[in-house]
Amino acid sequence: MGFDVTRFEGEVDEELVCPICSAVLEDPRLAPECEHAFCKGCIVEWIGHQPTCPVDRRTISALELKPVPRILKNLLYRLEIRCDNDQYGCTAVVKLDVLPIHLKECEHNPKKPVACVQGCGQTVPKDEMKEHNCVRELRLQVREQNDRIQKFTQEMSDMRYALTEQKREIHLLKEIVKAMRSSNPNARALTDQMEDDDVVRWAHTLPRARVTRWGGMISTPDAVLQAMIKRSLKESGCPSHIVSELMENAHERRWPAGLQTLETRQMNRYYFLT
């Protein structure tokens, strides 16, 4: 799995050759005790069949393998190697450490991505350009896009159905609770008392506030402000039934007659404050 020795300029030291594949080391690893070096791919595959060093048969595992010393890396990086694309006409000879960079930029690389010259805007491997069909590829893109849209639409439909079912169950539960409270006055009184206790406990946790602008404090918020207020109430520990009632009566059309206009609120502010 290493680099073919014949691709290198000059002689290659045998210490830089993998004992398993007899090629120049690629991504080398050392055995833990004997420190024999192997290509990572070679030694991992070897250990998968036989957990011993191929040279001296000492027992090793893949977890015990370690990187080679810097000096060995430097010796490998100084080697000069011919480009992988020499069979396609590339005559470049580069240092081993810059080979990956060269391959990405090599004009002779058959897999180098190039833009379609026919105008479809796609990028395809160079060796596939002759077989490239703009209409076919665009149709494939449209089909894939439609599949994604259909999948998303189905997910949204499933989500809406789930929400509808949840709302139906909640409504049914409310009706059951209402019926139980109507049929059993004691249970209704107990529920009311528990809700009142929840409100008192919540109120005692809140800091006192000074009302300086009565009309502004209770003026109708828009949808964004209502959402912010609802979130703040929940974060403060407000009982859920109080949050629901406050949000249901947030708009002034649900307020008592004496509060429906700013003028009446200002005229009666002392009455309401007391």
Rank of each mutant, 00 (worst) to 15 (best):
D4M: 06
V5R: 14
T6L: 03
R7Y: 09
G10H: 13
P19F: 08
V24I: 09
D27G: 07
E33V: 12
E35G: 07
H36F: 06
F38Y: 15
F38H: 09
E45H: 11
Q50L: 07
P51I: 00
A62M: 05
V68P: 02
I71V: 15
N74C: 06
Y77S: 06
R78E: 06
I81L: 07
R82D: 08
R82F: 00
C83T: 05
Q87R: 11
Y88D: 13
K95T: 08
D97E: 05
E105Q: 08
P110Q: 10
P113W: 04
A115F: 02
C116R: 03
Q122Y: 00
T123C: 01
P125S: 10
C134I: 05
L138Q: 15
M156P: 01
E169R: 05
I170D: 11
L173N: 08
V177H: 10
R181D: 15
R181Q: 15
S182H: 15
S182Y: 14
S183G: 15
D197I: 00
R201N: 03
R201I: 00
T212F: 07
Q226R: 13
K230N: 10
L233A: 10
K234N: 07
P239F: 04
E248H: 14
E248V: 05
W255P: 04
R265W: 06
Y270I: 12
Y271E: 02
F272T: 03
